[in-house]
Nucleic acid binder design. Structure first.
Length: 222
DNA sequence: AACCAGGAATGTA
DNA sequence: TACATTCATGGT
């Protein structure tokens, strides 16, 4: 079994059509990618709607807005001071370095675009890759906590691998296609949310036959 | 490399 | 009800 086989198993178990909301609006995807950090989508969605209601869902508006106006609107996502600063920082970069034209940034080649995204305080590897795949349509694989945990339980990694090392494994195993990467990540999150949490629900888990963790659990129970 | 930022939801006693 | 854990992380 390899990463391609894992994709097939997950694809048979979950449906991920239009998993990331509003993929047709790149700016909203980026705002969502920042706000979703370490929260649930329900909380991020509330914050996005609050921003929309206030007319703060454009880079110009966020750039011009006071941080103290942003913070209460995105409060339900947690880390609201840091996230408000991240949003403002990104939008400031857009107006200063790209004349407010997001499309120019999104058209940069993958490696250069990733460097630019990572230069923003508050945008790390995972958020940068989420923006690259879901907003820019670039084949940059998103490695999240669910993915790392699943690979660990499958016994395919030791646990001390870096983000980029795990990313390279997926990149080398798959065709360099943004839709493939996007679907795979969505499947991994779907699986993580239902079966591969910190507190696992192994009943009905489609990877149970491969998973060392499940085997250990069963031994413990019996 | 452990620790912190934080509200909201969910789990446990 | 009180208390603990976890979440589509990132920075120090």
């Amino acid at each position: 079994m390899d990463l391609t086989g894992l994709f097939d198993i997950l694809a048979q178990s979950y449906s991920v059509r239009d998993w990331w909301p509003r993929r047709d609006d790149p700016f909203e995807v980026i705002v969502g990618a920042i706000l979703i950090q370490r929260t649930t989508w329900a909380n991020a969605a509330r914050a996005i709607e609050a921003l929309r209601d206030e007319g703060l869902l454009t880079s110009e508006a966020i750039h011009a807005a006071d941080g103290s106006r942003l913070e209460p609107l995105i409060r339900p996502t947690g880390f609201y001071r840091a996230k408000a600063a991240t949003l403002k920082g990104f939008c400031s970069m857009l107006t200063q370095d790209y004349e407010g034209e997001l499309s120019v940034l999104l058209q940069l080649p993958l490696p250069a675009q990733r460097v630019v995204l990572l230069s923003n305080r508050g945008i790390g590897d995972e958020t940068a890759d989420a923006i690259l795949v879901y907003a820019a349509g670039k084949p940059s694989f998103v490695v999240d906590a669910f993915t790392r945990r699943l690979l660990l339980r499958l016994g395919w990694i030791e646990g001390d691998e870096s983000y980029v090392e795990i990313q390279r494994a997926f990149t080398e195993a798959l065709p360099a296609d943004a839709n493939t990467f996007a679907s795979y990540h969505a499947l991994l999150v779907q699986h993580g949310q239902t079966h591969c949490r910190v507190r696992p629900r192994c009943v009905g888990c489609p990877t149970a036959s491969l998973c060392d963790f499940v085997t250990v659990q069963r031994k413990d129970v019996q």
